[in-house]
């Protein structure tokens, strides 16, 4: 049974429908990416799961029960974390405070401390900068912080929206390395990415969305090998 499953989900902003009948599955332990051109509805998929936009139909099931109509804090409490795109951190709060906010629902101080140690073990840089204001860090560090904050509730699954957006190639590598590291420690990851090539490299499986509909699906290597996918989404397949 998949950990997260979307069956024929339709959604939109107000009366404008963005997702049409989208279906996808994420199994426990996998890294699954969702790729596609701009406006394909990739980020919208996350937003409908979190309940931020108008849900029009279909089924969203996490760990055997529906997420439809659930409040964001309940979704997080059930073990599904979401890291929005754009390196969103609380800029006027320290790194430590940001991480504490990630564990807002946890009242057990010992568990919060353990979660923080865990995050610091994956992102040692955050430990060095614990007292620094988040807004004063580099873009890459802010992205790491946002991911680390998503880990604070020790979720079973994390939804990462465009983690490499606007980062230098070196930092893009680092972000993907950290994503793999998180997955190796048992986290299920669903990834939305513009940088399709890198995403497919680290993913077990992937979905291609186009204009809010399912277009292709398959394993990372399968899609990387698909000539149509290569020309349309991988910049002509120059690099593999």
């Amino acid at each position: 049974m998949p950990l997260l499953e979307l069956r024929g989900v339709s959604a939109g902003y107000g009366s404008i429908q963005i997702l049409h009948d989208v279906s996808l599955q994420v199994n426990a332990g996998e890294i699954v990416s969702v790729i596609g051109p701009n406006g394909a509805g990739k980020s919208t998929t996350f937003k409908v799961i979190m309940g931020f936009i108008t849900y029009l139909g279909g089924e969203i099931v996490f760990d055997g029960s529906s997420l439809v109509g659930e409040r964001p804090d309940r979704i997080l409490a059930r073990g599904l974390a979401y890291v929005p795109q754009g390196r969103v951190v609380f800029s006027q709060m320290t790194v430590r405070e940001n991480l504490e906010m990630g564990a807002y629902l946890e009242r057990d101080r010992a568990k919060i401390a353990a979660a923080m140690d865990y995050v610091f073990s994956i992102f040692p840089r955050l430990a060095e900068r614990a007292r620094q204001l988040a807004g004063s860090m580099s873009g890459g560090e802010q992205q790491m912080l946002a991911m680390g904050r998503g880990l604070m509730m020790r979720p079973r699954m994390m939804m990462l929206d465009e983690p490499s957006l606007g980062l230098s190639p070196r930092l893009v590598d680092e972000v993907f390395d950290k994503t793999v590291a998180m997955a190796q420690s048992g986290l299920t990851v669903m990834l939305v990415e513009q940088n399709a090539a890198r995403a497919l490299e680290v993913s077990q499986r992937a979905y291609v969305l186009e204009l809010g509909r399912n277009r292709y699906e398959g394993t990372g290597p399968e899609l990387l090998a698909n000539p149509e996918v290569r020309t349309m989404y991988l910049g002509g397949g120059v690099r593999v």
Binding site: P72, A77, P84, F90, E97, R149
Partner: peptide, 17 residues
């Protein structure tokens, strides 16, 4: 802290639970 976090970014605050 949650009040400050909400002031800084309500959507992310929501994501934090």
């Amino acid at each position: 802290k949650a009040i400050r976090a909400t002031a800084l970014n309500a959507e992310v605050a929501m994501v934090c639970g």
